[in-house]
Design a protein around this nucleic acid. Structure first.
Lengths: 124, 124
DNA sequence: GCATTCTGCTAACTGAAGCAAGCACAATGG
DNA sequence: CCATTGTGCTTGCTTCAGTTAGCAGAATGC
């Protein structure tokens, strides 16, 4: 149906990036300069036409002063789903769940990441 | 000197991967099957000839049952240095900060993501 | 009115990620 | 002694991330 293979993730990442960029009062070229990428490429990322590598995401995160992980999650390359929560340290989970400013989606993201950390720790 | 552009990171990642694979008693093909990549490509990754994308790294991590994050670090695409958190909504922050099973780095990651959510929310 | 300088976007190219097919060598075993 | 099946590696090929060069429109100023 869609000839564009990266609709879902690409767009949500792109939207988020553009949102962050504009709210930071940066032009495409300014951010591209900060992040060390070309401005047309950044434009394409923001419109969901290209999906940036993790390296590029890290650069962009630095330029925008947001966490690289948050971009990774948005880009779908950090996901943390394997998790079956262990029964350990419920404080973080509860604090996240009860936080009034987070959206349900954001809560899920945080909980997933947290779960992956806990699982990882017990694994190795 | 070296005609190979990705010596440092590529090799340390490759060495680590091969180490993990062999100690897990897996052949190239077995792991490539588990991770959903081709076996020649995995071979090249392990020898530092190719540098895998974050997606591939995630798959490999899953197959080896190690954390994706550890591979990202080895691949040089996760580094964790960025942020300066804002001062808002202390509950989640405190719960994360005081969690005993999280590493300092993981705490930082979670706090960064949380900060980006909160910042994003108050921004717009 | 026209030049400058922003803004974002398009087009065409380069280089490398990742693939399928297949090779060379050991070890088994009929 | 040769077929089979395992190991890892090499060779081309396709696809796409990321590039440079340049276009179209809005805002400034001479």
């Amino acid at each position: 149906m869609s000839k564009n293979p990266l609709n879902d993730l690409g767009e949500s990442l792109g939207d988020y990036l553009r949102e962050q960029r504009t709210s930071a009062q940066l032009s495409l070229r300014q951010l591209s300069e900060l992040a060390g990428v070309s401005n047309p490429y950044l434009s394409q990322i923001e419109r969901g036409l290209k999906r940036p590598s993790a390296e590029i995401l890290q650069q962009l995160a630095k330029g925008l002063e947001v966490s690289a992980e948050s971009l990774y999650v948005r880009a779908g390359i950090l996901d943390a789903e394997t998790a079956h929560p262990t029964s350990d340290a419920l404080d973080v989970r509860r604090a996240v769940a009860e936080d009034p400013v987070l959206t349900a989606r954001q809560k899920k993201t945080l909980l997933d990441i947290y779960a992956s950390y806990v699982e990882d720790d017990s694994r190795q």
